[in-house]
């Protein structure tokens, strides 16, 4: 049986993980390679590396991180952050990334999704959608939530699916950081209507939240950052909670 995936996300700036990481026994909590290996050892099903660097110099450092993570871990990982061209994707995939995620650049240039999926196959094209519940609607926001786009999350999800996205990473900006649970309603509206996998993100605080997003939200995978980094809950705890309640997870 296909299992539900648990995906920790690492924010990387100038080659270092940001957000405090409270793991004991980590020699260097800021080292993304060591952290990636740690999460892999704890049973993470995939990893997500998000480059939040703005400078060109930082970008080349990020490529080096991708290469090192690829040689250190034997699970798949997605990279994202500022990707807007085929040539960038080519470099990232040949550096060892398995998938790339595009976000703002896909909104300004929807054809990018089509081109990437034709060039590299839909299996490696993840479209990240940031949504916020405003005025009774789930609206797509961009530029890390600072701008509205005029798009509705469900419509945009369908469009990128039709354009060849292999997967959707849906982040609820309404729930993000709250630790009060994922936004199961919009996750379900997208995941249960589209024929591609959906990764839910934003709002994870307890193992029960993961259970809810898989059952009520119909998500195929769930992503979290803070709760894993700060040791609020571990991947093992989430997985054993899910397993006890009959959700298929990888041992």
């Amino acid at each position: 049986m296909l299992t539900k995936r648990i995906i920790p996300c690492l924010d990387i700036k100038n080659g270092r993980t940001v957000k405090g990481v409270s793991f004991v026994n980590l020699q260097d909590a800021g080292d993304p390679v060591e952290l990636a290996a740690r999460y892999s050892g704890q049973g993470a099903d995939e990893l997500c590396l998000l480059d939040i660097t703005a400078t060109l110099e930082g970008r080349s450092t990020f490529i080096k991180v991708v290469e090192e993570v690829a040689s250190a871990v034997s699970i798949p990982f997605t990279v994202g952050g500022g990707i807007s061209s085929e040539s960038q994707v080519e470099v990232l995939l040949s550096s060892g990334a398995d998938k790339v995620s595009v976000n703002t650049s896909a909104i300004s240039d929807p054809g990018l999704v089509t081109r990437l999926s034709r060039a590299f196959g839909n299996q490696c094209v993840v479209v990240a959608i940031d949504a916020r519940f405003t005025e009774g609607e789930w609206q797509v926001v961009s530029h890390a939530g600072t701008r509205t786009t005029g798009l509705l999350a469900e419509d945009w999800a369908r469009e990128v699916c039709d354009r060849g996205a292999g997967e959707i990473l849906l982040t609820s900006f309404t729930a993000d950081g709250s630790r009060k649970g994922f936004s199961n309603d919009i996750t379900s509206a997208i995941s249960n209507r589209l024929p591609i996998p959906v990764i839910a993100s934003g709002g994870a605080g307890t193992p029960a939240h993961f259970y809810d997003v898989f059952t009520k939200g119909g998500a195929d995978a769930a992503l979290a950052a803070g709760i894993f980094h700060y040791g609020v809950v571990s991947i093992e705890e989430v997985k054993s909670y899910l397993k006890e309640r009959g959700i298929a997870v990888r041992a």
């Binding site: 049986m1 296909l2 299992t3 995936r5 099903d45 839909n122 299996q123 292999g166 997967e167 024929p195 591609i196 996998p197 195929d220 995978a221 990888r250 041992a251």
Partner: peptide, 26 residues
């Protein structure tokens, strides 16, 4: 959903590649 993406269990092994692999491994 297509693609079939993620970890799934494998079983009914035959041949040398699966020596020592537990049926039901992901």
């Amino acid at each position: 959903k297509v693609p079939h993406m993620g970890w799934n269990s494998i079983r009914e092994f035959r041949g040398p590649l699966f020596r020592g692999v537990e049926p039901g491994s992901h």
